[in-house]
């Protein structure tokens, strides 16, 4: 049950971390930035077209396609953690991974004194622990 792609998107829709694993289409970084901001705006609009009360709805949280499943986790701070996996992976598993990713983000990016909030994450410890987290779910990392 591989995971294809992981994105972390900041509050304003900018991509701050991305990882593409085996099986996904390999996009250049600019393309990834575009995809992330598209996803962010889709989430905002999905809130506006809601047929029901939108008071505490954050918008799109999961998306199913024929060949993959996307899960988005947004804690109260507004940052978005996105994982794309094969359709067999259940929502609960993906949500669990994203919650742990949120912990890693808090521990190794936010607590890093050289990290500026909402900027791309370039922290060695974060990379190491991220790969450790992802290892059971991927075949061979591309990059």
């Amino acid at each position: 049950m591989p995971i294809y792609t992981v994105f972390i998107i900041n509050r304003s829709g900018g991509l701050i971390y991305s990882a593409q694993f085996q099986g996904s289409q390999v996009h250049p970084l600019n393309e990834c930035l575009r995809l992330a901001s598209t996803l962010h705006s889709v989430q905002q609009i999905s809130r506006q077209v809601s047929p029901v009360d939108i008071l505490d709805d954050i918008g799109l949280t999961s998306l199913e396609a024929k060949t993959f499943r996307l899960r988005l986790y947004q804690p109260l701070t507004g940052i978005q953690f996105v994982a794309i996996a094969t359709p067999e992976v259940t929502d609960e598993i993906l949500l669990g991974i994203l919650r742990r990713l949120h912990l890693l983000y808090a521990d190794y990016a936010l607590k890093n004194p050289f990290y500026v909030q909402d900027m791309p994450i370039r922290c060695k410890l974060f990379d190491i622990h991220f790969m450790k987290l992802m290892k059971p779910y991927i075949a061979n990392p591309v990059e």
Partner: peptide
């Protein structure tokens, strides 16, 4: 508009195979 964007997004995010 949302559906157009989602379709395009799904196409780009789909696995390579």
């Amino acid at each position: 508009g949302l559906l157009f964007a989602v379709k395009q997004l799904c196409r780009s995010l789909a696995p390579a195979n």
